[in-house]
Amino acid sequence: MPRRFGIAAMAMELMESLLVQKPATVIYPVERLEPPERFRGRLRFNPDECSLCGLCQRDCPADVIKVVRKRVEKEDGTKELTGHLEFEMDRCVFCGQCAQSCRKGAITFTHEFELAQPSRELFMMDTRTEDTADEECDVDEDTVP
C-alpha cells in the first residue's frame, strides 16, 4: 500500500514490489488464516447442559433444530424426561440465535469452517450418536452472551 506520496517514493515502492515482494497467496491447506474471535463456525452442543426447553428450536430461523423428548419410566415408577437434539446442519445459516436463546449455554460456535460433506445425510448432527464435543477444534468457552 503506498504509504508516502511523491514521485521518488512511489518509484521506490514500485521497484521494491517488483523485485523483493513475495506473493500474497496463502498456501492453503498448509497455511491457514485464523478467523476472528467472534466467528461463528461449526456448532458445538453440550448435552449435559441442555434442559430440553426447546427455545432454540422455536427461535431458529432456518428450522435446523429438532428437540426429541421421551418420557421414560424408571425402576421406582417415576417418570423422567430425557431426549436429544437433532441438528440439520445443511439448513443452518450460522446466525447464532440458538446460542443466544439458550439460557444454559449448551450451544456454542467453534472456529471450524471446513464443513463440506459429500452427501446430504452426513450433515445431520444427531447428538446421541455423534461426538459433538470435539477436542481438536478451537476450544472457546466464551458463549454468545
Binding site: M1, P2, L18, Q21, A24
Partner: peptide
C-alpha cells in the same frame, strides 16, 4: 499486465 497490477496495488 504486471505493470498495471503493480500500479493498482495488486500482484
Amino acid at each position: 499486465r504486471k505493470l498495471i497490477a503493480k500500479f493498482q496495488n495488486r500482484v
